[in-house]
Nucleic acid binder design. Structure first.
Length: 310
DNA sequence: CGAATTTGACCTGCGC
DNA sequence: GCGCAGGTCAAATTCG
């Protein structure tokens, strides 16, 4: 039923796209009718054929778009169902565990054990974290699982003061202090995720009370620092401070071309510049994804169809 | 040689 | 009070 209108719309589209096509019969001089008559007929036929092809293509794309929309709706429904199921399970578990574990250790488990859990966990953590005065943030960095180095390059200079194997995680936890200590109170704990050994989980406590070293570098000179990103894999996840409204961002920065951008990311995770960087990287990784661009193109063509039909 | 890292000992908080 | 686990200290070691 859409095909008729599709033909019309595609023809009109083609009119706009083909500058050599006569817009009006009056525009074609009559004296050429005899000489170019056959040619004109051929051209018209080919244009009609082309319009037909375009109409078919648009039809195909719109139906594909429809299917994708339906799939997306189904996925959303499934996600919501799973989400509510997970919340149920977690609420049951938490009531059992709450009397077993101390608040502090519970918070740690929330940090390191449930890295990929639902955001409700984040919220529950944040509620508990309200008891803490220090600002706590978490950054995940993807590295090679075989790499035993627990260094997370974030632009600041850190001094390692301890390492410990914890009960819940076979991989050791490294303790870092900002090299500006004791004037800077910030501490950092780095440990591999139990669920994904290739993921380093860095927990920051406190706020830096000094300028970001990279910003200072950038102010003084625009060169250097390329080695800083040598170990940087991908900033996989960046999640909430104490504000529960902040979403978890999953970001793939693993492409080699992002080295320069990654350098810029070495700013404090709470800074507006860092957040702007995250947004930019999200946009760029989306536009690099051929599936995304394809889906976007289909969606746009669907919109165009809707518009031309109305 | 000085700075950074490693690592075992020690401290602290919590549950039993 | 004891044991456990996380966190910190500081001497020893490594590295540039």
């Amino acid at each position: 039923m859409e095909s008729k209108s599709l033909v019309d719309s595609s023809t009109s589209l083609d009119l706009n796209l083909n500058p050599f096509r006569p817009m009006d019969h009056e525009e074609a001089p009559n004296e050429f009718d005899g000489v170019l008559g056959a040619q004109a007929c051929d051209q018209k036929a080919s244009i009609k054929e082309e319009a037909g092809h375009l109409a078919e293509e648009l039809d195909r794309i719109s139906s594909e778009n429809k299917k994708l929309t339906e799939m997306l709706a189904r996925m959303r429904e499934n996600f919501n169902a799973l989400q509510s199921h997970l919340i149920d399970i977690e609420s049951k578990n938490s009531t059992k565990e709450i009397f077993i574990k101390s608040r502090k250790r519970k918070a740690e488990e929330e940090y390191f054990g449930n890295m990929f859990s639902h955001s409700s966990n984040e919220e529950s953590y944040c509620k508990k974290a309200e008891n803490f005065n220090t600002k706590v943030s978490r950054v995940c960095v993807r590295t090679d699982a075989s790499n035993t180095n627990l260094a997370v390059k974030d632009g600041y200079q850190w001094r390692k003061y301890g390492q410990k194997v914890t009960r819940d995680n076979p991989s050791p936890r490294a303790y870092f202090r900002c090299s500006f200590a004791p004037s800077c109170p910030v501490k950092k704990k780095v440990q591999r995720s139990t669920e994904d050994p290739s993921l380093l989980v860095a927990t920051y406590e406190g706020e830096h009370n000094h300028m970001h070293p990279f910003r200072a570098d950038q102010l003084s000179s625009s060169s250097g620092g390329s080695s800083q990103c040598a170990n940087l894999g991908s900033v996989h996840s960046f999640s909430s401070m104490r504000s529960s409204s902040r979403p978890t961002v999953t970001l793939d920065l693993i492409q080699s071309g992002l080295c320069e951008s990654a350098k810029n990311s070495n700013q404090h995770v709470d800074s507006p510049a860092f957040q702007q960087f995250l947004v930019q990287q999200m946009a760029s990784s989306l536009t690099r994804d051929p599936n995304f661009t394809e889906t976007l193109a289909a969606a746009i063509s669907g919109r165009i169809l809707d518009y031309t039909q109305n």
